[in-house]
Amino acid sequence: NITNLCPFDEVFNATRFASVYAWNRKRISNCVADYSVLYNFAPFFAFKCYGVSPTKLNDLCFTNVYADSFVIRGNEVSQIAPGQTGNIADYNYKLPDDFTGCVIAWNSNKLDSKVGGNYNYLYRLFRKSNLKPFERDISTEIYQAGNKPCNGVAGFNCYFPLRSYGFRPTYGVGHQPYRVVVLSFELLHAPATVCGPKKST
């Protein structure tokens, strides 16, 4: 009989979020998941679920829940969905086509923008091939755009693969920082350890 609540607040209220190319993952297990707390949290810009209804989450049990978190621009949030393409979905964070879970995003301009620009948040701009679902690539190898080998030196046709967002408070909404948490639900042939409040007695 599990009684402790799942530590969703640790994920959602973290002081610093990860850059999207180096997205953070927390495994959540052996706890009671009260999703209504999240669902009623006012400032969400997006709360979209795939393969599961957000209002039914509290009735369900899962083997594991993974909480992935990172920061992207407002106009990139739409790429955090199954079957998407674009710089983020291709080179930074890719969801599987059969994704079961929820994508939760909110504007973090007050936290993550600075006058003069916040350059701490990076994304991958160049990559030889697209990421596989949930693949994480933190390499900083110089990207070779031409035929000539770069030998690890940036220059003509040789690019550092990461780019900084440089968030400023005055940017338009599409270019403002958004914090994103992706909850993915794993249902294995194993005992369920993460259940909603109704199922955990």
Rank of each mutant, 00 (worst) to 15 (best):
E186M: 08
A18Q: 09
Y171G: 00
W106C: 05
G83K: 13
F47M: 13
Y35M: 13
N109Q: 06
V52T: 09
D90T: 08
L122W: 11
P161M: 03
T15L: 08
T140A: 13
T193E: 12
N4A: 12
V103G: 01
F45A: 15
C195E: 12
K148V: 14
N120I: 08
T3P: 11
K94C: 05
I28P: 01
K48D: 10
Y21E: 02
V52F: 12
T100S: 08
G51E: 05
I28H: 05
G74K: 06
C49K: 03
R168P: 00
Y66L: 09
N4V: 10
G172D: 00
F160N: 14
F185P: 04
Y21V: 10
V37R: 15
V182K: 02
K48T: 10
Y143V: 06
G152P: 06
K56H: 14
T55W: 11
N87W: 15
R25C: 00
A42G: 15
P191T: 13
A192C: 11
I2A: 14
V65H: 05
T85M: 08
V37G: 11
A33I: 15
V11R: 03
L183R: 01
N1A: 13
I142A: 05
S164V: 04
L122M: 15
P96K: 06
F47W: 15
P7R: 14
Y171T: 04
A81R: 08
N1P: 13
L131R: 02
N58I: 08
C49S: 03
A18W: 06
F156S: 06
N64S: 14
L125P: 15
Q84P: 03
S113N: 02
R25F: 02
R73M: 15
I138E: 14
C102E: 01
S36D: 13
R124W: 01
T55H: 14
V77E: 02
D97T: 12
Y178D: 01
N118P: 02
V153L: 13
R163H: 15
V180C: 08
I80V: 09
G74F: 03
L38P: 05
F99P: 01
P7W: 07
D68S: 03
S164M: 06
I104Q: 00
T85I: 08
F12E: 02
F99R: 02
T201M: 13
C195W: 10
G51M: 05
Y121K: 06
G196I: 11
G116I: 07
H175T: 00
L188P: 11
I2Y: 13
F41H: 15
A145T: 06
V52S: 05
N13R: 09
K128L: 09
C158P: 02
L122S: 13
Y171M: 04
N24H: 12
N118V: 04
A33L: 13
E141K: 10
L57D: 06
L5P: 15
A67R: 04
A18G: 10
F17M: 07
V65R: 07
A22G: 08
F156V: 09
L60R: 11
V71A: 05
N120A: 13
Y35L: 14
K110Q: 10
A42Y: 10
Y35I: 13
P96W: 03
V194F: 11
F167I: 00
F70A: 02
G174W: 09
T15Q: 11
S129F: 09
G146Y: 03
K198Y: 13
Y50L: 01
G166I: 03
S113E: 00
A192V: 13
K199C: 13
V103P: 00
A192T: 13
D90H: 09
Y159E: 00
Y178P: 00
L162D: 00
S36K: 12
P149T: 06
T100A: 08
V173S: 11
Y50G: 00
G51A: 07
F167D: 00
E76L: 04
Y159C: 00
A67I: 11
K26P: 00
G51T: 05
F12N: 03
H189T: 15
D112L: 03
S129P: 15
V65L: 12
R73T: 10
K128V: 09
S184F: 08
I104N: 00
F41G: 10
L162Q: 02
P177Y: 03
C195S: 12
E186N: 14
R27N: 11
A192D: 13
N24Y: 07
N75C: 07
V180T: 06
S29P: 09
